[in-house]
């Protein structure tokens, strides 16, 4: 056991424990806050695994943006202070599927790697990853940008009810007049 192994074990235990609290807690807001702990521990894991850029991107996008969005959604929909009882449905099938897939994958991976040891490769700095992205993975990168644009437009269309309503009505002129009157 080297220092890296101890760090990986500790961060992994934190991540799994916080993940269990995310899916187990009865406080809506606390689930989001435990998600921050879980994602932060995973960012630490990436740092130990020498994936510097991925770790910082994880902190920026997941902890910085995705969790904030999720907490916004919690606040906008319903934010009861204190525990809520109606968050879960009876969960034996879920526990069976979750434990089955998790433990099954764990057994598979333990059997594949045993207690073997590898040397850590050169660190994945922004320079090296950028070289790979723009040399070998340019097409997927560009396709991803188109996908982000599509997701952006989709989210805007979904969250504006007046766009869908205009096309649903039979008389667009009446609908436009209605819109103007409401404004």
């Amino acid at each position: 056991m080297t220092g890296a192994d101890v760090l990986l074990l500790a961060l992994g235990a934190v991540a799994v424990g916080a993940g269990a609290l995310v899916v187990g807690t009865r406080h809506l807001v606390r689930a989001g806050l435990w998600l921050v702990v879980c994602l932060g521990a995973l960012a630490g894991d990436y740092l130990v695994l020498t994936a510097e850029l991925v770790a910082w991107v994880q902190v920026l996008i997941y902890v910085g943006a995705v969790v904030v969005l999720l907490l916004f959604a919690v606040m906008l929909t319903r934010a009861p202070i204190g525990p809520s009882d109606d968050l879960d449905r009876p969960g034996w099938p879920a526990a069976l599927v979750g434990a089955g897939s998790g433990l099954g994958l764990a057994v598979l991976l333990v059997d594949a790697f045993r207690w073997s040891r590898v040397e850590l490769p050169a660190a994945g700095t922004a320079e090296r990853l950028g070289e790979q992205v723009f040399r070998s993975w340019v097409l997927p990168f560009e396709v991803l940008s188109v996908l982000l644009l599509a997701a952006l437009v989709g989210a805007i269309v979904l969250s504006r009810p007046d766009i869908g309503r205009l096309t649903e009505r039979t008389e667009p002129a009446a609908a436009a007049g209605d819109e103007g009157g409401r404004r």
Binding site: A20, D86, A94, G98
Partner: peptide, 27 residues
Amino acid sequence: MRPVIPYVTAALLFGLGGYGVLRRRNA
């Protein structure tokens, strides 16, 4: 570095996520 440690962490997290998707009622 023993790769089995992060691999098992990932497997357990995946199981927890699957459990949460099936168990939770709040979207």
